[in-house]
């Protein structure tokens, strides 16, 4: 689904990502661990093609297509969806309108989707205007529900979320990732292979209690240092901290 090869990225002339190699196969959910400032969000912004993140070396391939220099909207149309940690407020644009935009010309039942996220009361509010941390997460996921991307990039989906909401957020992410795999009319025996993938950024790892991860990776000082079972990594980070953790990979 997503392949990153020898990726180097600069911001304002400073190298932020030094040599990133990563592969997320179809249907897999990967967790990206790393301390603050390690380059996790920069990697996500680079995958999405945001300005200011200059690729100086390497290649990003999505669904077999080289997207390294593709405009942002084409990446979105190709099937990459992002949940931002701190999205901007857009004055005058109602939340229900941006959800419709995310549908990309497909008919979307905004009210029904909002109901599932307990977000109906926010549809007539300006996008992200005075939203709390948890409300921002729900707004972002609501937009992704309308977009139905094949690859989800989730930046700290649990940060600023209260315990009650984190269950809802976990359920929604699972629903987004498993969507399309069940065919109830044919019965459970016809469960198809998972088709949706995700890269979930976290530095606390709390989200692992709510979603199922296939693999974990550690980004430290702009380099992917470790790639193995996500829960194992989390356990080591909790026990030894990032500095010790990355020593093991050297």
């Amino acid at each position: 689904m997503l392949q990153i090869e020898e990726l180097k990225v600069e911001i304002g002339g400073k190298e932020i990502l030094q040599n990133v190699n990563m592969e997320i196969p179809k249907g897999e959910t990967h967790i990206l661990f790393g301390p603050n400032g390690s380059g996790k969000t920069s990697l996500m912004m680079t995958i999405m093609g945001f300005s200011g993140y200059n690729v100086t070396h390497g290649k990003i391939t999505f669904k077999g297509e080289d997207i390294t220099y593709m405009p942002i909207h084409e990446r979105a149309q190709l099937g990459i969806g992002v949940s931002f940690q701190r999205p901007p407020t857009i004055n005058g644009l109602k939340t229900k309108n941006i959800v419709e935009i995310c549908g990309m010309n497909r008919s979307v039942d905004v009210n029904e989707l909002a109901k599932q996220l307990d977000f109906s009361d926010f549809l007539d509010r300006d996008v992200n205007h005075n939203f709390s941390g948890g409300e921002i997460k729900r707004s972002e996921l609501l937009q992704l529900m309308a977009q139905e991307p094949d690859l989800l990039l989730l930046d700290e989906p649990e940060s600023g979320v209260d315990l009650e909401s984190i269950v809802l957020i976990g359920d929604t992410i699972n629903s987004l990732l498993h969507k399309g795999i069940k065919f109830p009319r044919r019965g459970l025996s016809h469960i198809a292979a998972r088709t949706k993938s995700a890269l979930v950024i976290t530095h606390t790892g709390h989200i692992l209690d709510y979603i199922t991860a296939d693999k974990g990776q550690v980004l430290y000082e702009g380099i992917v240092r470790c790639s193995r079972n996500a829960r194992e990594i989390l356990k080591w980070i909790r026990e030894y901290g990032y500095e010790e953790c990355v020593l093991c990979s050297n």
Partner: peptide, 19 residues
């Protein structure tokens, strides 16, 4: 942000101006 939701740059600017 709007481009990440699938709008091209001109459409994104128009949407922001309208808002």
């Amino acid at each position: 942000y709007l481009m990440a939701r699938g709008l091209d740059e001109d459409e994104a600017v128009s949407t922001i101006v309208r808002g």
